[in-house]
Write a protein that binds this DNA or RNA. Sequence first.
DNA 1: TATGAATGAGAATTCATTCAT
DNA 2: AATGAATGAATTCTCATTCAT
Lengths: 199, 199, 199, 199
Amino acid sequence: MRNTQSSSLRRQRLIEAAHQVFSDLGYEGATVASITARAQIATGSFYRYFPSKEACFLDLLDTLYGELMRAVLAARARGKDAEEKLLLSVEAAVTSFLAQGPLARLVASSRHGAQPAVRARVQTVAGEMARLLARDFDELADGSRSPLEVLAAGQFLVGGLETLLDGVLAEEPPPPPGDILPVVRRLTIGMIGGFRNAR
Amino acid sequence: MRNTQSSSLRRQRLIEAAHQVFSDLGYEGATVASITARAQIATGSFYRYFPSKEACFLDLLDTLYGELMRAVLAARARGKDAEEKLLLSVEAAVTSFLAQGPLARLVASSRHGAQPAVRARVQTVAGEMARLLARDFDELADGSRSPLEVLAAGQFLVGGLETLLDGVLAEEPPPPPGDILPVVRRLTIGMIGGFRNAR
Amino acid sequence: MRNTQSSSLRRQRLIEAAHQVFSDLGYEGATVASITARAQIATGSFYRYFPSKEACFLDLLDTLYGELMRAVLAARARGKDAEEKLLLSVEAAVTSFLAQGPLARLVASSRHGAQPAVRARVQTVAGEMARLLARDFDELADGSRSPLEVLAAGQFLVGGLETLLDGVLAEEPPPPPGDILPVVRRLTIGMIGGFRNAR
Amino acid sequence: MRNTQSSSLRRQRLIEAAHQVFSDLGYEGATVASITARAQIATGSFYRYFPSKEACFLDLLDTLYGELMRAVLAARARGKDAEEKLLLSVEAAVTSFLAQGPLARLVASSRHGAQPAVRARVQTVAGEMARLLARDFDELADGSRSPLEVLAAGQFLVGGLETLLDGVLAEEPPPPPGDILPVVRRLTIGMIGGFRNAR
DNA sequence: TATGAATGAGAATTCATTCAT
DNA sequence: AATGAATGAATTCTCATTCAT
């Protein structure tokens, strides 16, 4: 039986299926067959949309992180100073995470996947965000902290949020987003304040 | 060519190889062959030491996390209050991480491995640490924060450190441990202070 | 080189190859590779048709014994009394054996395979036939023989035929079926008569 | 800890263990390790007594069949005519089988083992017995039956007994030998009488 | 263009056999 | 002579990718 929907609709279904399956099973656990089954297309059709499983994953990752980054950059633009930028960035990132569903897991699950290319991209992409935030931390401290320290702060914030959201989303049932955001905001505010005051 | 070193030496080499390879490639990416190759033993010999790849990984994880937890608990015992306990815990954890080498990667890489048993154990083990810290955060706030918030704080701290150390250890060349610890200490102090003051 | 025959043809070739190879080498001796090589398909293709080597074997066994049993039951229906039923059963069984080719070996080769599931099924299936014949022996003796004795008679007849046919088919060249059937018939008649008269 | 029993005692224990394990698990299912474990000797010591697993099996087979054959030949010598010889042969064979314990299974389990050498030997050895009996059948019929028919009769008798004993010994609990022998005797007498009268 | 069967390179694991002690 | 750890070839099964239809 031939499926006759528009190509873009099929592509959309495939991307959603991939997102879901990668998030549930991780990069290694997800099989092309499991993705196409969920998308209700034939196995072979996968390769009309993506040249490989890896490319699909990277595409997905880029898309999702792209959205995230766009949201973050848009939100940051409204901030007057480093502190506001940081907080707005985090709020935007968390909102985007929560809206995208299981992205947090996807990223977390792939940080060290077997495929060097996958690993590298995930780290690149997470590193970018960390460096973005690191610049705010640097500004926050008027350049008085070492490069290592501001980068560490950025990584700490990114990783802390990633883990927090991942853990929170894994709960059964997951708490409503409305409960999560204030908690994240307070933690971030606290960390920012702490960073400024520390030593 | 038959390798005739003492059994305990071979075992040690195997464990180190497994640690290294699991850390580099993740649970899925690591093959038994890659581990035995690095340990310079025959494939089949792996199974004289571990009943399966999974058991090897879990063994390693339990051992490393056991050491970590022991170090943390011992350090905490010297703390007078929640704040001191938190800080001492983090210092001990980081010191242990840095001493153990690539443990951070190992944990991070396995948080979402495909094998349910592996995944579960990693999350259990990381969750334990987060809950331990969460109790400190609860005490720090005199019980004035919601369970979600204190747990989130614990997860945030654990995940933040995990990611930070992972990122830092991935740098070429990695900064000397002596540089890392003060940075981590200040970040933790900051976060603790921030958590107390927030809202 | 991609093999592009109709699926049912490939399946048929695979089943025949499995039949042949299992019969030649026994359950343990047969490897999936040896079966697929004979069927001229790729190793992995085996698993499109059967979920496992064991399932393939059991499938084959059930199919062949199913045919055998159907033939036997159909033939028996034409018998007026226990003696006729026995003789017709044996004739049908032997005819079916001879037509199916190496079934006898397959059963014989697997009576005590290492796999418990395989062993159990073979014994069940052979036991069923023995019990069917045992009922005839019971009737033949008007219930005057012990359960052990009638069951033994059934087993004796089944095993005797199995071995006989196996031995005969192993000869080079094998005698024409036309020569075998009368021999078997006379032996069976003899055994039946002997059973009735004994003691 | 060094085991310091006499070599012949160790050999005996090993042979008994091999007999037991081969009978329980079949040729393929039995591992050298399972045999040495049961014999309470080291794996490597197996090879002081037998050059290979296969040789061990064949040795065992030859020994057991040798005993059987000796018992049969001794018993036959007391028979006046073919009928008596047949009956005495069968009684001796069954008695020997029952005394040797699980030999029947061992033979049955190996009729079609994977190893060509194993297979061949089992068939040779069972074939010898069948041919011995076939000579009696020939004599019984005054040479009036075809070579195929008398050989078939021998095979039928051997296989029938093999299967019968195998089945009977597999029962839980196995019937006492005292119950089995009369049943076998009557079946044999019946078969002999039937053979003589048939056609 | 969509399909899904076919492919075959690997992966984990077993086990007969060897050999340093 | 006895031991048992070490070896590595072989086995079953998986799955990303290809390609005839």
